[in-house]
Simulated scan of single mutants.
Amino acid sequence: MPHAAEPDPFESLAADAAPLDLGPLARPVRRSLNGEHPGEIGTALPPLVDHHVHLMLVGADALTDTAIAGVVDLGAPLDLVAARRQRDGLPEVDFAGTFLTAPGGYPVGRPWAPDHSVRELGAIAADMRSSLPDAVVTAVNEQQAFGASVIKVALNADVGPVFDRRTLDAIVTAAHERGLPVVAHVEGDGMTRLAIDAGVDVLAHTPFTEHVDDALIARAVAAGQRWISTLFVTSYGAPSPDRDRAIDNLGRFHAAGGRVLYGTDLGNGDQPLGVNPEEVAALAVAGLAASDLLTAITDPWPRRARADGIATFVPGTAPAVLDELPAWLAGACIVPAEDLEEL
Results as ranks from 00 to 15, higher is better:
residue 13 L to F: 11
residue 14 A to P: 02
residue 22 L to Y: 06
residue 23 G to V: 07
residue 25 L to P: 00
residue 31 R to Y: 09
residue 36 E to K: 13
residue 38 P to V: 12
residue 46 P to M: 03
residue 51 H to N: 07
residue 62 A to W: 08
residue 62 A to E: 11
residue 63 L to E: 09
residue 63 L to W: 07
residue 67 A to C: 05
residue 69 A to R: 01
residue 71 V to S: 01
residue 74 L to G: 04
residue 78 L to I: 08
residue 80 L to F: 06
residue 86 Q to P: 02
residue 86 Q to T: 11
residue 88 D to I: 01
residue 89 G to Y: 04
residue 90 L to C: 08
residue 95 F to N: 03
residue 100 L to M: 04
residue 107 P to N: 11
residue 108 V to A: 12
residue 110 R to E: 13
residue 115 D to V: 12
residue 116 H to D: 15
residue 122 G to D: 13
residue 124 I to G: 03
residue 131 S to L: 08
residue 133 P to I: 06
residue 134 D to H: 08
residue 140 V to L: 02
residue 144 Q to E: 10
residue 145 A to R: 14
residue 151 I to L: 12
residue 156 N to R: 08
residue 157 A to Q: 08
residue 159 V to Y: 08
residue 164 D to P: 03
residue 164 D to G: 14
residue 168 L to N: 04
residue 173 T to F: 02
residue 178 R to A: 06
residue 178 R to F: 06
residue 182 V to D: 03
residue 186 V to H: 04
residue 187 E to G: 07
residue 188 G to S: 10
residue 189 D to G: 06
residue 190 G to I: 06
residue 194 L to P: 03
residue 195 A to W: 01
residue 201 D to I: 04
residue 205 H to I: 10
residue 214 D to S: 14
residue 219 R to H: 02
residue 221 V to M: 05
residue 229 S to F: 05
residue 230 T to S: 14
residue 232 F to R: 03
residue 245 R to I: 15
residue 252 R to T: 06
residue 258 G to L: 03
residue 260 V to H: 00
residue 265 D to L: 10
residue 266 L to D: 09
residue 275 V to Y: 00
residue 276 N to E: 04
residue 276 N to M: 02
residue 284 A to C: 07
residue 289 A to T: 14
residue 293 L to D: 00
residue 295 T to E: 14
residue 298 T to D: 01
residue 299 D to I: 00
residue 303 R to K: 10
residue 313 F to M: 05
residue 315 P to Q: 10
residue 319 P to S: 11
residue 321 V to D: 13
residue 323 D to L: 08
residue 330 A to L: 09
residue 335 V to F: 07
residue 337 A to F: 00
